[in-house]
Simulated scan of single mutants.
Amino acid sequence: MNILVTGGAGYIGSHTCVELLNAGHRVVVFDNFCNSHPESLKRVATITGKSVDLVEGDIRNGHQIEQALRDFKCEAVIHFAGLKAVGESVQLPLKYYDNNVVGTVRLLEAMQATGVKTLVFSSSATVYGDPQYLPLNEEHPLSASNAYGRSKIMIEDMLRDLFRAQPDWKISLLRYFNPVGAHASGLIGEDPDGIPNNLMPFVAQVAVGKRDQLNIWGGDYATPDGTGVRDFIHVVDLAHGHLKALEQMQQAQCLAVNLGTGIGYSVLDVVKAYEKASGKPVPYVIAARRPGDIASCYAEPALAASRLNWTAKLGLDDMCADSWRWQSQNPNGFKA
C-alpha cells in the first residue's frame, strides 16, 4: 500500500515509518520539519534498508497535500503532523488551533478531492481530561484543560461528523497514552527542542549529564509513593499499533481506540528503572504540584486487543534501556 505519513520525520512518525517499510508498504513522508529533523529519515533508511519518499510541505497547504496524494497514488494516510506541547498550547492557543485543527481540515479536503478515504489519526489520552474513573476506557467522557487537548477533541469530533456524512470512510482514532523509549538500534529516538516537556527525555538528559537534576512536580498525590502515575508505552509498540489499525480497517468505520499498556508507573518508578538501565544516578527534588496535573492516568487497553489484535509487549525496563541507548549514543539528538 502507498501511505502518506504526515509528520513522518517526528518521534512517533519515524518509528512508524520503520514498521510500515518493514511490512512492505511504500511510505511518503509529508513534513515541514518544524519540530523534527531530516536526519531521522536517513536513519530510518539505515535501519530498514529502504528509503521513504519525502515531500517537504506544510499541513495547512491543501494544494501541496493534494499534489502529494496524486503524485504518489496514495491509498491511505497516517496523520501525525501537529504541535504537541501542552504548556505552549496554553500560552499560544491560536497557533495550536491553526496548525492542528485547520491543518487537519486542509488534509481532509485534499483526501476528499483525491478519493483517499482511509485515515489513521494520532489522537491522545489528553481527550479524557481529569479521569472520572480508572482505568480509562473509550466510553469515558471527553474533556480537556488546555488548547492541545481541545484541538484533539475538535479533530475527533470533526472526523465523527465526516463519517456520519460520508459513511464509506475508514477512520481510526488512536488515543495514545505516554510514548517513551526508542528504536532498539539506538539510531532514532525522541529529540526534543530545548527543555523537554515530557518526563523520560528529561530523565535521560539528567542521566547523560546535560541537566543537573529532575524536578518532580508533586510528592503528595494519593498514589503509592506520592508522585504522579502514568501509563508509559514503548514507541515501537505504538508504531505497531498504527500498522495493526491499517491492517484491520477492512470495512467502513470511525473507531476510537486506546493505545496503552494498562499499567501505571509513578515518576519515581521511572527514575529507579532509568538508573538501573543507565548505571547513572538521576538526582531529583520534589517540587510543588503544577496546575492542571492529575494524580493518575492509565488505560483500559481491551478494545485494542479485540478490534486491532494489538497489545503492548515491551515493559518499563525495555523503555528505559532503549531510551538510554539512544540518549547515550546521541547526546545532542539528531543535531550532532
Rank of each mutant, 00 (worst) to 15 (best):
T114D: 05
V116M: 10
V116R: 11
K117V: 04
K117C: 06
F121C: 02
F121N: 07
S123F: 06
A125V: 10
A125E: 06
T126I: 13
V127A: 06
G129K: 02
D130P: 06
D130W: 14
P131W: 08
Q132C: 10
Q132D: 12
L134H: 13
L134G: 08
L134A: 06
H140L: 05
S143P: 06
S145D: 15
A147E: 03
G149Q: 13
S151W: 13
K152P: 13
I155V: 15
I155H: 06
I155K: 04
D157K: 12
M158Q: 13
M158K: 09
L159D: 07
L159V: 09
R160D: 10
D161Q: 09
R164V: 08
I171H: 04
F177S: 13
N178E: 11
V180P: 01
V180R: 02
A182I: 01
A184E: 14
G186R: 00
I188M: 09
I188F: 06
I188S: 04
D191F: 04
D193G: 04
I195V: 15
N198F: 08
L199F: 04
M200K: 00
M200E: 03
P201K: 01
V203S: 05
A204M: 05
A204R: 00
Q205C: 02
V206E: 07
V206G: 05
V206Q: 11
V206D: 10
V208H: 07
G209R: 01
G209C: 03
G209F: 02
K210W: 02
R211L: 13
Q213S: 10
L214M: 07
N215C: 09
N215H: 12
I216T: 06
G218F: 07
Y221K: 09
A222C: 14
A222P: 12
A222Y: 11
T223C: 00
G228V: 14
V229R: 08
R230A: 00
H234I: 02
H234L: 03
V235A: 04
L238Q: 03
A239I: 00
H240G: 07
H240M: 09
G241N: 03
G241D: 01
H242L: 11
L243F: 03
K244Y: 12
K244D: 10
K244C: 12
L246P: 05
E247R: 14
Q248S: 05
M249A: 14
M249I: 14
C254E: 05
L255R: 02
A256V: 05
A256G: 08
V257H: 00
G260V: 07
G260T: 12
T261N: 09
